[in-house]
Amino acid sequence: MNNDTITDYIFQRLPETERLDFERAMAANDALRQEVGELKKVWKLLKNAEPAADEALDNSFYKLLEEEKGNSKRPVIALKPRINWGNWARYAAVVASIIGAFWAGRQTASPPIEYQTIAAVLPSKTTAIDVPKAPAIVAQKPQKEAVALKESPPAVAKQIAELRKEMQMTQELVVLSLLKDESASARLKGLSYATALNQPANVVIEALIKTLREDESVNVRLSAIEALERFKIKGVLVGQLAQSTEPIEQLTLIETLLRLRAKESLPALKQLEEDPNTDQSVRLAARNGIDELRVEI
């Protein structure tokens, strides 16, 4: 086994297929499993050993920034003492919902209003200018407007598509920001927002996978399972079933994989069923799961 593969696996940088291959190799090799287990433990501990910045650092930076702004003598907007990313996420969510409401309003109301307004204005203009020449003007102007009107639906559709794209990007940013939050409740909120996304970007899916594999809170991991089920990321869930040691997480994964009819989970289920160290209820659920999936084969 290549050393790079081991570190890439521990750093969660292996592509999905290679990761599954590596886990299969690990399952068949006790020495490798032990080595990876030990390295993984040290790697996790290292993350906990990261001290945070304190208020004194914040204060000195913002003082420095104020001084620098004074030196540059440019008109600047007053800076808040510090940025609160939690608040930023909340504001972004509000902005996203306003854009959404605006979009919904546009979609339901705009076409009839545009047609009616133009119909009311045009006749008054043509009759007020010059009666004898009216037929020519009338014939020309509405034609122009008609062309414009014919062109407007694609333009509106384009605007809507752009708005929709912006809204999706904002939502994704909010999700990514919340998933990185130190508070478990914020991460749970992020997962709940993620579940509501339609076809999220790969970066969001990757963040969900990372949360499932690395988050310390079991509740957060359970929500991550739910989010990944929504996007039908079966392989990752199967991989997590082979790794997990928490009975509640194992049971949730089994139920989820059964709902997804993931036959590829059979080896992992079999392993759980046969492992004497696994919780009895999990072994039973694994047994039932195997039966259920085999019936469909």
Binding site: L65, E68, K69, R74, I77, L79, R82, I83
Partner: peptide, 10 residues
């Protein structure tokens, strides 16, 4: 626009 340095700082 030195205010943007606050983003990088955070």
């Amino acid at each position: 626009n030195t205010d943007q340095a606050a983003i990088l700082y955070e």
